[in-house]
Design a protein around this nucleic acid. Structure first.
Lengths: 338, 338
DNA sequence: TCGGCACCTGTGAACGTTCACAGACGCAGA
DNA sequence: TCTGCGTCTGTGAACGTTCACAGGTGCCGA
């Protein structure tokens, strides 16, 4: 492999020489060891400033066996879904939080087998200290691998039917869905339909369950349609529902993006929202503010979910044997569509 | 620092032992050196499979001085803007492309001074092989630093007024804006306004210039309003324009997100789109398909821009002294709003 | 005076690679 | 037979850290 001709950076030896102390003392000063005299500490700090020294992570990793980076895996076959603004929130918060600990965030896609192999190789190679899983589907081989590699991992959202009990932080999907459905029923809607996300994702399954909890036997197959979280799938599902059950007067959609699609389908079919059909989404992502009419939706505290996910992961990285998963409350945001 | 008690992974020595060859031969086999006998190569491959060996990047980095990772810097003071779907596209494409070369993508925010210091430390520490800059503002101290550190860097979009000639890949912002404006003029609009992005960003300045190129003296201050790329700023700017110039009959908005905001403001003001006011956006991001009416917009080939940006960066990383910046054509997508 | 104990420091070894070098082998040509 | 060359292999050194250890202070109490 080609060795770059780039000017060589100052090493800990240079700092030691300039500060007039030994390598070991510099290392201790830099890592906050208690046994460093005030004079030595000051000298080291001066020398660091003077030389522009920055620690070589590779060398440090080699001995500490820690990498100072965390991997976020986006497991989503639907490339387009990546445009869901939720991901951005997750990433942004995770970066912020990890940055405070000087941990950097590596992001990988895991949309197909090739991707997954890469992720597995990465994890198995010990290239990261922990893994943040986003929208992982149940049965994903990655879960087995993580278990085997004994590497700290946390998911956003509970993985349905999990043999693997990966800790998670999540919004109260089921409870939120119950309240949405109840809200629609309470406002006099009689034929309430739903559009779900993929049932092997947390939000997909649990939100459907919440819906069924409230409607019981009234939640017939004719009133349930399945989407894949994308706007387009919401449009298709809504069209399908209108065909199957033309008399529906409300629809609870599993996320805002699909709800935006549903609104388009309803408009195309000449139904007024909310007069003819009430529409409620889930997430309160930025999409909800750009639909017409503005979307009534169940807000999930995504920033908090992200914060908690990172917190749990950091605890595991710091050596905790186990951590408690966290479920956060949702809140109904009433706007125009219901 | 605490040494993790995690089971130790197989090293190149283990592979060598199992394969019955030496360390050096394994290294050569793994790195595709020509001078490896077929027998040795096969033995190494078998041994790798058997032991589950994955190279230790830290050790490799230490000697090669390459890290196998690229840093993407999102320089955006507006946290919310991060929700612009454009970012997702950029990231997705970059990850894909880099993954092909087994390079991983680290993402950092650079929204304030603290962030920037972190980024600079990261770069100066040699923690990445190259830097991908997204929406960097002119005058960003990061640019100076990158120049000083002699590290390969490429930006998405030309940085206006750049003392620093960082190579870039970009859409033809100016030409695209010209064509949008001409289109509005050709369709009989007489009082054409514009909402720009920040003028220290490529899209902000160049799209305004294109607008002025066509309208010349007709592009009066009264018909120009300034936004910051966010939906909200578009709404505010549109409201302002309507107050200043109630007789406007068209508006070219610097991006789709602000255009969505402008549509909301127009609706609130009781103007019909496109009958009373024609609206055209820029980007053709996913937002354009979720507005009502559907947004007419200038598509920028963002995936291609991303591909080219990465290509340029890889060339620099591979040792190219200089690379040619790339400008890609835009395309007008006529939908309902104009 | 001495031992013990905090406090502080320097040094050798190790982490897992790659690279440069030295050398072995076989074969072709003189 | 010898030389030279292309092919292939093993080994020592180096990359820049951290950690464990050994040892040096100075102070306090016996």
């Amino acid at each position: 492999m080609h060795v770059s001709p780039r000017a060589s950076r100052p090493t800990i030896h240079d700092v030691a020489r300039v500060a007039g102390v030994s390598r070991g003392t510099v290392s201790r000063a830099l890592n906050g060891d208690a046994y460093v005299s005030a004079a030595a500490l000051a000298a080291v700090q001066r020398a660091v400033a003077e030389t522009g020294y920055v620690v070589n992570r590779a060398a440090r990793s080699l001995v500490t066996r820690q990498t100072g980076s965390v991997l976020m895996v986006l497991s989503e076959p639907q490339e387009k879904l990546f445009e869901d603004p939720n991901y951005s929130t997750l990433m942004r918060v995770a970066m912020r939080r990890l940055a405070q600990r000087d941990i950097s965030l590596v992001i990988m896609l895991s949309a197909n087998d090739g991707d997954r192999d890469r992720v597995i190789r990465y994890v198995r190679g010990g290239h990261c200290d922990g893994v943040l899983l986003v929208t992982t589907h149940s049965g994903d081989p990655l879960l087995d691998e993580l278990g085997r590699a004994h590497i700290p991992a946390v998911t956003c959202g509970e993985i349905p039917g999990g043999r693997h009990q990966v800790p998670y932080a999540a919004a109260d999907d089921r409870g939120g869905a119950q309240r949405v459905t109840q809200y629609l029923a309470d406002s006099g809607r009689r034929r309430i339909a739903t559009i779900t996300g993929p049932l092997d994702t947390p939000g997909g399954l649990l939100r459907l369950e919440g819906f069924c909890d409230v409607l019981g036997r009234k939640a017939t197959k004719k009133l349930i349609a399945y989407g894949d979280w994308t706007r387009h799938s919401g449009e298709v599902a809504m069209t399908e529902l209108l065909e199957r059950s033309p008399d529906l007067d409300a629809v609870f959609v599993g996320n805002d993006l699909m709800a935006a699609g549903a609104l388009a389908a309803l408009r195309a079919a000449g139904r007024r929202v909310p007069e003819d059909v009430a529409v409620v989404g889930f997430d309160d992502s930025s999409v909800a503010m750009s639909t017409h009419p503005l979307l009534t939706t169940m807000r999930q505290p995504l920033e908090q979910v992200a914060e908690e996910t990172v917190r749990l992961l950091l605890e595991l990285i710091d050596g905790a044997e186990t951590v408690e998963s966290v479920v956060l409350p949702t809140e109904l945001i009433v706007r125009e569509s219901a």
